[in-house]
């Protein structure tokens, strides 16, 4: 997982003003490289706004991977079988790995890991709002894999061709692993849908809660999406929020039918003319409420993250002190 296509930084919310006049020679060379599908590497010249946009997007993405471990991690000790438990541990470990790939990519843009951590822990940095919803049942773990990771894949595949080399390479690695995540989620849903009446009801109840927040993950409609223009010019964002959302719905509806689950949208209907599903309006007020900190679990997630970090501080300090001491001893012996 899991970027969320939105721009919450007021500084760059005015894309028209930010679209550069492309005047200076280095700027022209930069844009020519991007236009020709070339890659920008860390020490190449890049516009300051490009660097800032990427830094914000990649670090938000990394934070989302890290916070994303919490809703699933809660279920490791409650997984219904040893097999499911082993799978879930591997999945959560992958999410940690994805966070690390992405922090590593973000650091190439000149911000330290500590600064990024501080931004997350103070609440200044955002992460995907989907993790501010609770995982109340085991079906929710399936739902995160099937729908949340499924939505993430839609979003992340075009990012593999992003103009910034380290981000594109990290995304290739992430996408390879993400497919396992979605399938294990679907597998959980499949088991529940073939199960008892209670298990089926649990699956349906879970879908009823997750469907709309997952659609919102793709970000505001294109008409209101403020930074898409510039990001498209820079080839950071290559497919629009609405296109990705439509693609996700078209792919997911038949899967829900196969599971025998009803998608909670009265207006959902196949449109023979467009060749896509029509769907009902998304509650953007709810989305922004959650983004701005009023979701069901915002405080809990951040508090859990800060607690884990603070409680691990002595371990990090001790490991560093040990390494310094050993190095000093080696120097002494060598002398």
């Amino acid at each position: 997982m899991y970027t969320q296509s939105m721009d919450t930084d007021p500084e760059t919310r005015n894309p028209v003003a930010k679209v550069s006049a492309v005047g200076r020679p280095e700027e022209q060379r930069f844009q020519a490289t991007v236009d020709a599908e070339g890659k920008i590497e860390p020490r190449d010249w890049m516009p300051e706004a490009y660097r800032k946009t990427l830094l914000r997007q990649i670090s938000q993405h990394a934070h989302s991977e890290i916070i994303g471990m919490f809703p699933e991690g809660n279920w490791i000790s409650r997984a219904p079988s040893l097999k499911r438990k082993a799978i879930l541990i591997a999945k959560v470990q992958d999410e940690a790995g994805h966070g690390l790939y992405l922090y590593s990519a973000a650091e190439t843009l000149g911000q330290s890991r500590d600064e990024m951590m501080a931004a997350l822990h103070s609440g200044r940095a955002k992460y995907s709002s989907i993790f501010n919803y609770p995982t109340l049942t085991w079906a929710d773990v399936g739902m995160i894999g099937w729908l949340v990771d499924g939505a993430a894949i839609m979003n992340q595949i075009p990012l593999c061709r992003c103009s910034y080399g380290p981000y594109a390479r990290a995304m290739i690695r992430v996408c390879k692993e993400e497919s396992f995540h979605q399938r294990q989620g679907f597998d959980i849903m499949l088991s529940l849908s073939k199960g008892t009446a209670d298990q089926k009801a649990m699956a349906q109840e879970s879908l009823d809660r997750w469907w709309w927040p997952v659609l919102a993950m793709f970000g505001p409609p294109d008409a209101d999406s403020v930074h898409s223009g510039q990001s498209a010019q820079w080839k950071i964002k290559r497919v629009s929020n609405d296109e990705l959302r439509q693609k996700f719905i078209d792919a997911t509806v038949p899967q829900a039918e196969l599971l025998g689950l009803r998608i909670p949208d009265e207006k959902l209907k196949w449109n023979t003319q467009t060749g896509h599903y029509d769907f009902g309006p998304i509650d953007w007020d709810d989305f922004w409420r959650v983004v701005n900190g009023e979701g069901p679990c915002n405080k809990e997630r951040l508090a859990a993250r800060v607690k884990a970090y603070e409680e691990g501080q002595w371990v990090r300090d001790a490991a560093m002190a040990y390494a310094v001491k050993r190095k000093a001893r080696q120097h002494k012996e060598a002398a």
Partner: peptide
């Protein structure tokens, strides 16, 4: 393939194994 933070070389190797070679 990327970078990571570690206290010393030995730990860096172990972490690289966990972060970059899970499959």
């Amino acid at each position: 393939c990327g970078s990571l933070h570690a206290t010393d070389a030995k730990q860096a190797i172990q972490m690289a194994r966990d972060v970059y070679t899970r499959r």
